[in-house]
Design a protein around this nucleic acid. Structure first.
Lengths: 344, 344
DNA sequence: TTGTACGCGTTATCAA
DNA sequence: TTGATAACGCGTACAA
């Protein structure tokens, strides 16, 4: 049992009131310099640590934010977290980390727990299975500062920090088109997620703009992980057995890795038979045997920007709700069958 | 400003006392079933969320633990964190994440902040620069449950969860010896850290047991990151210009990566001129051009075990202080110049 | 079955 | 410059 010294105990030792001790330790100017010194030294020798729980109860402010992440073990998110941490550290906030493990139910229970802990705000990247949009909306309307990052839900009153998914998807798809590929497939995410919708739209619009036939059958929902990508690609290969696509654009790198595995298992080679491109620039992407062409996201900056926006929103109720888009970068490697080293 | 409903507000709406509302919401059996229902429904419609801050103040328990990590952006630690999270989630604790960024000063300020937040316990992996051992000891003696993991300080009254560094280092060094290497260098960590000491001891003892000459000049302190490994290796190569070592055992993989870079820059090849082995099995290790022989650590299990031990210590003051060693696995790849695929 | 009083550690407010 | 009091939201202990 950790023995914690209180203001009153210091006061008793010194024969003064708790209030004076409080004032002295907070370095208020209406305290005699001598008493101030006595108090500070006594507090130190007794090993006093201020009780933020009590402080928070009075002030209705905890200097704490909650972060809800769909997968901790994902290089992208751990980089985002370090960005967030850099800001919270500088601005003297503590960070509650929770993991939704891509499950909407866990997300809801985390958010409830964070609310009970009276966090000053929440940063969230939605789970793949996020469905109950009203749930977020109720909490936001209730006044808890909320900032979405990466996997956002826009239009429900919270700020969003994400990358220009639409444009980047269009550019990477156009890159494939420019290289002569005509039948290009897409492994997609859930439609109710802005990120997934934008990436799909970028893909479709690129096809349209170049007068290529857009075939619904070449889009398969894979979700965000390797297994999902593997299964989706297998399904796609079966479906198009007589006439497989020449290229695949996966909505993120892990899904692309899964797809590559499925392609190789089917006896085809990358990029000669089927080219593959991803999104997110996983650490592994440049190291695998056929390095993956992908879109690099500024993960650390996303974290920093989102955390700043959240704390600004907490500090200032006039802070406007906005959608902030950060810039991506296309990384051309071998998996698309183009010359390596070129970068748009 | 988030408007938070209180027990009293619910009570007023219903014309009953706050106490009855409290009892009803905690599902006590000394409340009329009808009132219970009325209360629960009212609480729901008013959007009540229990205030854990107030609860904690009374109960002197926050159901919160603090985690202090030297580097969030490190695959090993993010895996440890997911292990920790799995346990805290199951046992209904929240997790404060803090980053010491390998700086002891930041570590101290984090721990102070966590104490102020009245966490029920702390999980910590020490910063490379950890020096003020008394600081930890004071806090532990004061009664705050503490569990070290991976980078531990033993013998100051806290439990430790780590891997069998000593044995694994010995085995991997013996592996090099068995392959015929005689002059083997070591890139080490700070001596006051158990982990670093154990790895160095394993290395030295392996040399001794095989009657090889142990040369102090072949040990250079590199620290845990790539830059450190690079600099240390450069220094080593300069120092031994006339007679460079045939193999290097780095205390972790990032340091090994840095060393590999330095070796290549000096115009030598791996493993033909100098063999390299690491420790920790970074995600990149199997993917780089000359895959790294290393020791795989059960990161997820370390996190789980440490979190369990901490919560057990919190729940039960009789819980013994102990040092728990988890098993590593040696992964033989190409960088040591032995046949790949073999695994001890 | 329900209600009142009190305390957790802190600070704002008013009084001395 | 200092002290007494009340309040933050909740639950324990006791009284009704």
């Amino acid at each position: 049992m950790s023995s914690n010294v209180t203001l009153k105990e210091i006061a008793n030792e010194l024969g003064i009131s708790a209030m004076t001790v409080s004032r002295a330790l907070n370095d208020k100017n209406n305290v005699d310099e001598k008493t101030k010194k006595r108090v500070v030294s006594k507090a130190h020798s007794m090993g006093y640590t201020p009780n933020h729980v009590a402080k928070s109860l009075v002030s209705r402010k905890t200097f704490t934010i909650g972060v809800v992440i769909p997968e901790i073990n994902h290089a992208f998110f751990s980089e985002v977290i370090s960005g967030i941490e850099e800001v919270t550290y500088k601005r003297n906030y503590q960070l509650f980390l929770t993991n939704s493990a891509e499950k909407h139910e866990r997300e809801k229970s985390s958010i409830n727990a964070l609310q009970s802990k009276r966090v000053d705000g929440i940063l969230i990247s939605c789970a793949e299975t996020a469905s109950d949009i009203d749930f977020y909306e109720r909490i936001i309307k209730n006044g808890l500062p909320f900032v979405f990052f990466d996997r956002c839900i826009e239009g429900i009153g919270a700020s969003c920090v994400s990358v220009n998914d639409y444009e980047s998807s269009k550019i990477i798809t156009e890159h494939l088109i420019g290289h002569g590929y005509e039948s290009i497939a897409h492994l997609s995410g859930p439609d109710n997620m802005t990120l997934a919708r934008n990436r799909k739209r970028g893909y479709i619009d690129a096809l349209m703009m170049h007068d290529l036939l857009f075939q619904e059958s070449l889009i398969v929902e894979s979700g965000f992980n390797e297994t999902g990508g593997y299964n989706a690609m297998k399904k796609l290969l079966e479906r198009t057995a007589d006439n497989p696509p020449r290229a695949v654009f996966a909505l993120n790198d892990p899904a692309a890795f899964g797809a590559m595995k499925a392609i190789r298992e089917s006896g085809q080679s990358i990029p000669d038979d089927i080219a593959v491109v991803g999104f997110s620039d996983d650490v592994r992407s440049e190291l695998i045997s056929c390095p993956l062409t992908t879109v690099r996201q500024p993960a650390f900056d996303i974290g920093k920007t989102a955390a700043k926006k959240l704390i600004d929103t907490i500090d200032n109720s006039e802070e406007p709700t906005e959608t902030i888009k950060l810039k991506n970068e296309i990384i051309i490697r071998q998996s698309c069958g183009c010359a390596p080293g070129v970068s748009l």
